[in-house]
Structure formats: C-alpha cells, structure tokens
C-alpha cells in the first residue's frame, strides 16, 4: 500500500539546509488586503470517507460533518499525515484553501446559503465551499485552484460595503 505521501505538504524536508517554502494559495491574492481576512489554508485538512466513530472524533481537533459518511477534519498542519493514517483518511491539506471573514452582511453578498443553518456546503462567490460559522466569523474551505478568484470576489464585495 502506498501511504500517498505525495499528497502531504507537511512531509517536505530540508535539502542542503533549504526547506521547501510552503505557499498558501491565497498568499499572493491577500497580500496587502489588511487583516480583515485570515488565511486558513495552511491548516491540516483530512477527508474521512466513512462514519467516524466517537472515540476517534474525541481525539481530532475539529470535526465537520458534511454527510453521514463524509467528514472534514481540521488539525495542525504537521499532525495531518499521522492523523490521516490513524483515521484512514485522505490528506486534503493541499487541495483546500481556507479563508476566514467576518460580517453577516458581507456573507449575504457572497452566498445564498442560509447563514442560520451552518455548517453547510454551497456556493460562495460562485464556488462550492464548506462554510462554518462562529458568531460573526465565517470560515470557508474550497478548492485551492479558485483561491485567487474567491479572494478577488470577497475583496470586491468588501469594497462594495465600504
């Protein structure tokens, strides 16, 4: 069995004293955007394709149920490979970008999801996202290749509210 190490960016190692530089998919787009937005892309993210039993759940830092047999687990970046092995999960740290923003009004400009019914999956800025909510803060996780696009749409919506 392959452990699919090539999916885990946290397994990078230094060569000749040079460590591979980790680039968040939002890093370029959010440069100079101020601190209203937080980049969560560097978090460890795991996708579990079956029902998580309670014991494992207790050990995982944050568990987001997407469907009965599909769960997103958020953890420290370095913990991802080991936790993936433990849970029999796929390390999707590199696949998903993460963005935290605040303000219900801003979210209403970005999505037609029911903001009182989160967490949920749905289109934000036109892109399929997993959306979590803590009071007035919202966290979005989405395919990293849309990072520039989502950042641009969010920044534009913020400009429209100023």
């Amino acid at each position: 069995m392959s452990d699919l190490a090539f999916l885990s960016p946290s397994l990078a190692s230094a060569v000749d004293g040079v460590s591979p530089r980790y680039r968040s998919p939002l890093e370029h787009a959010l440069a100079g955007a101020g601190d209203a937005l937080r980049d969560l892309s560097t978090l460890g993210k795991l996708e579990v394709r079956r029902e998580l039993d309670a014991a494992l759940e207790a050990g995982a830092p944050e568990v987001v149920r997407i469907a009965p047999n599909r769960t997103l687990v958020l953890c420290e970046a370095e913990a991802a490979p080991a936790l993936a092995a433990q849970l029999g999960a796929v390390d999707v740290s590199a696949a998903l970008a993460g963005l935290a923003l605040s303000g219900e009004r801003l979210m209403r400009r970005l999505t037609d999801l029911d903001l009182d019914g989160l967490p949920a999956m749905g289109a934000v800025a036109g892109i399929q996202c997993t959306v979590l909510r803590d009071e007035d803060e919202f966290r979005l996780f989405f395919a990293q290749e849309y990072g520039d696009h989502v950042a641009a749409v969010v920044l534009d919506a913020m400009a429209g509210l100023r």
Partner: peptide
C-alpha cells in the same frame, strides 16, 4: 525536498518525467 509522485511518460516525444507534488510546494 518535496514529497513527489514521478511518472516517466512522454507526451512531447523526448525523455521526460512528470513530477506531481503537493500544490503548496
């Protein structure tokens, strides 16, 4: 230093390697 998957294939007709690595790297 980056974990990779390497495929020796040749769409362009010369000796070639396709190197797949985690996108942040």
């Amino acid at each position: 230093g980056t974990p990779c998957l390497l495929l020796r294939i040749g769409f362009v007709g010369e000796l070639g390697y396709e190197i797949h690595c985690p996108s942040p790297l």
